[in-house]
Design a protein around this nucleic acid. Structure first.
Lengths: 299, 299
DNA sequence: TTGCTCCTCACGTCACGTGAGGTGGC
DNA sequence: TTGCTCCTCACGTCACGTGAGGTGGC
């Protein structure tokens, strides 16, 4: 009797811990070489097929797609490459799942009478969440004459990043921000545009610096008041309207600022702070508040 | 002209932020009521359909399956129930994804020469991981005469729970434990069974108590030595063999224990500790070590 | 009349699982 | 001879997306 070291499909499946159907599928896909068929058409596998099948199973257990498993086994792609790619893939899916879990937890913890409303609120934001709607809101809000560089930088600073592993409260805040931005109509936004003779680039360049200084003051716990941040803030408004910083200018500024205030901005910044969570850097809104308080204090 | 307040499928889709194909699909599934068809066969939707479609989209964004969405909308199931069920569903999937991510990260951080071996190692454990193989290992390891209650309690204490959000090192340790348990053959296990005249229930009941006391001592940072834990430990062995605690018995015990030692147990317990992670309760193995050191110290 | 919208099939996705109906091999 | 294994179709899964080929409606 000639000793045959090939394996039947059942044998192979059992030793690798998969079903016969699965082995048949891999064979049909060309992932697993059949040594030959027996007289009756039964598949016979060479002994190396077991190790190969185990590697297929290992990669599949990590959810590597079947075609990619094939490429990894046949050395077209290195194992390292496949692992790295799959890690990235999984990161995306994890982010989406974490967001969904926090959203569901929020609903689960909501009082019954708010459930329907909150479902609509969180259901309106995509999963994983996108900041595109908020960025669009800001682009419409900013003066049209602003340079592309400053526009991008302001949008970037004003739009909070959704956290990677959010708490339910952060999901709610983000959803509310989203709704706020979606409700803002173009006419409503246009009515709050600054006057046409304003030098937008001068203003926003100055504000950017002022906010950065104020944020540092805030983080350091300093009380609002005179200082480089406030000087920079006032200089931005003075420069933008072709004037100079002076006691008179400073006295008149708060009323002008208040007149240009958009009523929902306070809500925007408080929601943005809630999205970022405790311990995050101060928002532009918080910096603005700190600066205006400083203006009042020094008056 | 009669004012018609129905919506076309395109209108409806746009306002709800989904594709026309999707609306068609929901309509065909009976999720969305069509008011009627126009002369040319075009679907017309009543105005309430928009709110309904938005709710469908919200629930689908949370990955609630379509049939379940239908039940939630038609009040067969309360929204709360659906949310709770989906939260559970997501928890399971998150656990699996977190495990996979840690496994992939482990492979990603592995030196190239260990990659293949580790892939096989972690690929052999199911995702999410199951403790069934480890429990089976312990059931084969324990004396057959042990009562079901004690058997379950020992297995429970000896098998580490895989962490919900594992670090790569914990995945590796769990995979190694798994391989260790899988490699243990029945004959290898049988050769380490205790003698037949041993009163297994007396021994393991006593050991359970001794380990609990020793674990508390360990957690409190107490050095090995005489005390209630050690008394309990010695009493368990004495009682199991029909003897009494005595200086002679204590002197002879270490050699007997060493003779019965299973060579891979030290590795088992160190892996089990690695699976549990830093700051976890001491393993039974750590308690055993502490007790044996106490025996040596007091000799 | 010209685009745009809308219609209905039919098929694809992804990795197998589930039968049905029949046969090989110890 | 009796189970058990193995074979090949064909179809199902889940929530749509993608065409093809044709028509309605402003």
């Amino acid at each position: 009797v000639v000793r045959d070291d090939t394996l039947s499909i059942g044998e192979l499946a059992r030793q690798a811990g998969v079903t016969v159907k699965t082995v048949r599928f891999y064979s049909d896909q060309g992932l697993l070489p059949e040594a030959a068929r027996s007289g009756g058409g039964h598949r016979r596998y060479p002994p190396e097929a077991l190790a190969r099948l185990r590697r297929i199973r290992s990669l599949r257990a990590l959810d590597v797609p079947v075609p990619e498993v094939g490429r990894a086994l046949d050395r077209d792609d290195a194992l390292e490459t496949v692992v790295a790619r799959q890690l990235g893939e999984l990161g995306t899916r994890l982010a989406a799942l974490r967001w969904r879990e926090a959203a569901l937890r929020l609903l689960h913890e909501s009082p019954p009478e708010e459930l329907t409303e909150r479902l609509e609120l969180v259901g309106a934001v995509s999963v994983p969440p996108s900041t595109a709607a908020l960025a669009a809101y800001w682009r419409r809000l900013l003066p049209p004459r602003l340079s592309a560089r400053l526009r991008a930088s302001v949008v970037d600073a004003a739009v909070p990043q959704p956290p990677a592993d959010p708490r339910p409260a952060q999901v709610l805040a983000f959803a509310r921000l989203h709704a706020l931005a979606a409700r803002a109509t173009d006419t409503c936004l246009a009515s709050h545009r600054p006057p046409a003779d304003l030098r937008a680039d001068v203003l926003y360049d100055g504000l950017r610096e002022a906010y950065a200084l104020a944020a540092a003051d805030l983080t350091a716990g300093r009380a609002p008041g005179p200082g480089p941040a406030l000087d920079c803030y006032v200089a931005a408004y003075a420069g933008a309207t072709g004037r100079r910083d002076s006691p008179d200018f400073r006295r008149a500024l708060p009323a002008q600022l208040a007149a240009a205030d958009h009523p929902v901005m306070a809500r925007y910044w408080s929601l943005a702070a809630a999205v970022a969570g405790p311990g995050a850097d101060p928002t532009l809104g918080a910096a603005e508040d700190w600066l205006r308080s400083g203006l009042d204090v020094s008056a």
